[in-house]
Structure formats: structure tokens, C-alpha cells
């Protein structure tokens, strides 16, 4: 589903920052991959390269076989197939909860008002917000906002979902409700790439864990491998710090 081949990303801000260094990964359909690593290791950059919010400096990225770095690719078509959930939710504050979930369906997928509302209602029910469809995002708690954001991304019927620390901005008591939605998605067979510090989640649902440091993938493997006998010293150090 996702193939990244020798991806480099260098920021010039104004000194060269090598955010991604020769990153390669192959993520199959239905696979749940958790990306972990210290702050500044390039996790977000990797995720954002996958839907070209950041344009990789070199290398190749294929989403469902489409080369997204090719100038001839219609990136908007690809992005509609790749849902993204942000740390800071980024709901549209001037739109109601329902409109947040219907807008892109109408504008991008060209669905009718009725069809997109129906879809939105079903998804909001699924994430447990069906009683608040007419309120504005600022009246919701963080956990509720994040669940609406997930519904908004799911409304496009994406083939892949990218999560960038979806629970890091949440109060501890709200983390569970968001993780539950993500676990449901994983069980339903969604292809997911999640940057998260929630090791419980990684252990429970990840098919594979990728550890990044200094812009490179240091180690990748199953959760058992990772949490019982990691090979690299840097992985061991990182795990000892967060567990």
C-alpha cells in the first residue's frame, strides 16, 4: 500500500537540517505500523512526506502504486485516499461538527448533501459524537475534537490513515476514548501509520513498530521483538527512558 524508497528530506532553515536520511519502508494493506522515536527524529516529517504535505527532497514514495513525487500526479486525488489526523486536531472552527465532516465529501468527492450527511452521521455515531453534530468545535473537549477529526478523515473513505501523535495534546482521561476509536479502525483492517508515544497501543494493535532516530529508521520489528529484546543500543536507551 505504501512504499518509501531511499527518502531524504532536508530543510534549509537556513542551515541544512537532515530531517529524513535514506528512509525506506514497505507497508502492506491492512497493516498497522507504529512509529516511535525521540523528539526531532523525523517521525512527523516522514508521515507528512507520505501525503506530500512535505515534498521529499529525493527518493520515491508510492501510495497504492502511484508515484506521489511525480510532477504529473494529481496530488489532491492521492490525498483524498490518505486520511491524516493531527496532534492539534485542526478542526475547522467556523464550521459545525457535521459540516466539518461533510465539507470535503461535497467539495472533493462531489457527493450530494444528503449522501454526505448520511455518511457523516454514521461516522460520528461510530466515534461516539452523534449527539453533538450541530455544535462548533470550540465547544467540544479535546478528546471529542480528535474523534471528530478522525471521522472527518474517514469520511473520504481513505485507503490509509496517518496519525501524528493524535493523543499528545489530550488530557490523560481523554486519551483512552481516542485510542479506542483507533483500535476499532485497526481491527476493521484499515492500513494505519501512527506516530505515538502510547506503548500500550503499540503493543496491543501494531503489526510492526518502527524506531527512528536522527532522521533514519534504526530498527523495525514486531511489538514482541521490540519490547522484549531490541537489538540496537539507541532503541534500548529510548525504551528505557519512556517505559
Amino acid at each position: 500500500m505504501i512504499q518509501a524508497k531511499n527518502v531524504y528530506k532536508t530543510f534549509y532553515a537556513p542551515h541544512a537540517i537532515h530531517a529524513l536520511v535514506d528512509v525506506s519502508a514497505d507497508i502492506a494493506a491492512g497493516e498497522v505500523v507504529v512509529v516511535i522515536g525521540p523528539s526531532g527524529s523525523g517521525k512527523s516529517t516522514f508521515l507528512r512526506c507520505l501525503n506530500r504535505l512535505e515534498h521529499a527532497t529525493s527518493g520515491h514514495i508510492y501510495i497504492d502504486g502511484i508515484d506521489i513525487l511525480d510532477a504529473r500526479t494529481d496530488i489532491n486525488k492521492v490525498r483524498a485516499e490518505v486520511g491524516m489526523v493531527f496532534q492539534s486536531f485542526n478542526l475547522f472552527p467556523h464550521k459545525s461538527v457535521l459540516e466539518n465532516v461533510t465539507l470535503a465529501q461535497k467539495v472533493v468527492r462531489k457527493r450530494s448533501g444528503g449522501a454526505s450527511t448520511e455518511k457523516a452521521m454514521a461516522l460520528l455515531k461510530k466515534v461516539g459524537i452523534s449527539d453533538k453534530i450541530d455544535v462548533f468545535p470550540d465547544q467540544l473537549s479535546g478528546g471529542q475534537q480528535q474523534r471528530v477529526a478522525i471521522a472527518r478523515a474517514l469520511a473520504m473513505d481513505p485507503k490509509v490513515m496517518l496519525f501524528d501523535e493524535p493523543t499528545s495534546a489530550l488530557d490523560p482521561e481523554m486519551i483512552g476514548e481516542v485510542l479506542d476509536v483507533m483500535k476499532t479502525l485497526a481491527r476493521e483492517g484499515m492500513t494505519m501509520v501512527c506516530v505515538t508515544h502510547e506503548m500500550g497501543f503499540a503493543r496491543e494493535v501494531a503489526d510492526r513498530v518502527i524506531f527512528m532516530d536522527a532522521g533514519a529508521i534504526v530498527e523495525a520489528g514486531t511489538p514482541e521483538h521490540f519490547f522484549t529484546n531490541p537489538t540496537h543500543d539507541r532503541t534500548k536507551l529510548f525504551l528505557s527512558q519512556i517505559l
Binding site: 501525503n51 504535505l53 492521492v78 490525498r79 490518505v82 491524516m84 493531527f86 478542526l91 467539495v107 477529526a149
Partner: peptide
């Protein structure tokens, strides 16, 4: 970013 990531 949210808008563009939805394909707008």
C-alpha cells in the same frame, strides 16, 4: 494542512 490533506 487539514484542508489540503483531505484532498482540497
Amino acid at each position: 494542512e487539514a484542508a489540503r490533506s483531505l484532498g482540497m
